[in-house]
Write a protein that binds this DNA or RNA. Structure first.
Lengths: 219, 219
DNA sequence: GCAAAAGTGTTAGACATACACCCATGC
DNA sequence: GCATGGGTGTATGTCTAACACTTTTGC
């Protein structure tokens, strides 16, 4: 999210209320930014360096009238952040919503990050590392693809996250061996080549595998 | 640690000072309990359920005179805990030290846990799960074994953590293939069987592998 | 019919698993 | 010499990685 009146961007975030878990608070943040409920999220790290936060950005926002000066005291406290990554199907989010201190909220490729406030670059790096690691232990896709999808689409997802090419035929075999896909018997028509089979996740089996994890040497 | 005047045990823990990272605070806890510095530690999860803590134990300790009644207000706050696991060479810790609210502090097998306060059983379960997972991605042993050790000793460590038997010959081959062991050319004499080779870790390579991680299908 | 991309199958090599044999030590 | 357990080697099957061929679709 781009902060108002600044050239600095920030990750979406928020505070944990006294009667909330961190997960509930993260859910709220996700809902407010995407208008979507029940997004898959994973806690991955706590950031506790006392020097990681300061009130510099806040002071600037107060000067510009974005925040009231009475908030300065609060923001001069010491903050820790619990890092979560979340998986959202990009196309489901019509327009990511900014909050009141930000000018706009939008999707940005990890290969094209702008300048970020505080330690948010580090948080993104760590989240991405963890996501890549988790890819080898848990299925993904249920949260990142439409209800129905094709094998090439699923593969594109993996290739995007891992940032590498995967052999089409080996990918297919591995995915099918996980036994979490249902062949809908439909085909995705429309392009001038063989129409790929349309799959959907077997949700019961999907969650079961997600729970147990595997230890695949995928790709 | 067994709490004074109660049949309930607790994990070692403490508070994070305003100018400390969580890691520094954990280091202090570890130093105070074990008298050892620079223990390997790994953050694994934050526990934030608002209902996870309550002041019941504290009230009891106040009634028994262990804590002053003025501390009650503080302990009626809402607390979150950042879970760390740490790896310590058991034999290096002559006598684990209790703190002022506990009667004794001692090593307890994970197979023989007593009744624990609050959600500490869950914390232990999660820590153990994470440790087992990490075992497949990072070397351990530098923190859990004496400077010099034998292959059977290293194997016993793995078998203890994973709680399963490993084939002696396959274990040896895998460990040697990681290329983090130095053959000291010594042998551990003393028992009425072939004397095993004494190894030590190649610390440079060890830390390198620890950093990079691997993705071994170990055992 | 042709181009493009998906589905199916195969094969060589790497790795995991299981086990057999020999060797060194203390008594 | 014998019991015990460590060091070395090898066979078998399974899985990964690389690649060839066939099929289906739109134009």
């Amino acid at each position: 999210m781009k902060l108002k009146s600044m050239d600095t961007w920030a990750l979406p975030g928020g505070f944990i209320e006294l009667n909330q878990t961190a997960e509930e608070a993260a859910d709220e943040v996700l809902k407010n930014r995407t208008t979507i409920d029940n997004i898959y999220q994973q806690q991955f790290q706590v950031f506790t360096d006392p020097k990681r936060t300061n009130a510099e950005h806040i002071k600037h926002l107060i000067n510009k009238g974005v925040l009231e000066s009475s908030t300065l005291d609060w923001f001069e406290n010491r903050f820790i952040s619990i890092g979560f990554y979340a998986l959202v199907e990009y196309s489901k989010v019509n327009k990511p919503q900014p909050d009141f201190i930000s000018e706009k909220c939008q999707w940005i490729s990890i290969n094209d990050l702008p300048q970020l406030m505080l330690d948010h670059s580090i948080i993104i790096r760590d989240a991405y590392q963890r996501l890549k690691k988790d890819l080898y232990e848990k299925p993904i896709g249920l949260n990142l693809l439409p209800e129905k999808f094709t094998m090439p689409e699923l593969q594109a997802l993996y290739e995007t996250i891992l940032q590498k090419k995967i052999d089409r035929r080996n990918f297919r075999r591995k995915m099918l061996s996980l036994d979490i896909l249902i062949d809908t018997k439909e085909k995705r028509m429309g392009s001038s080549n063989r129409a790929p089979i349309v799959y959907q996740f077997d949700k019961k089996k999907y969650y079961q595998v997600l729970e147990e994890g595997y230890h695949a040497n995928l790709f």
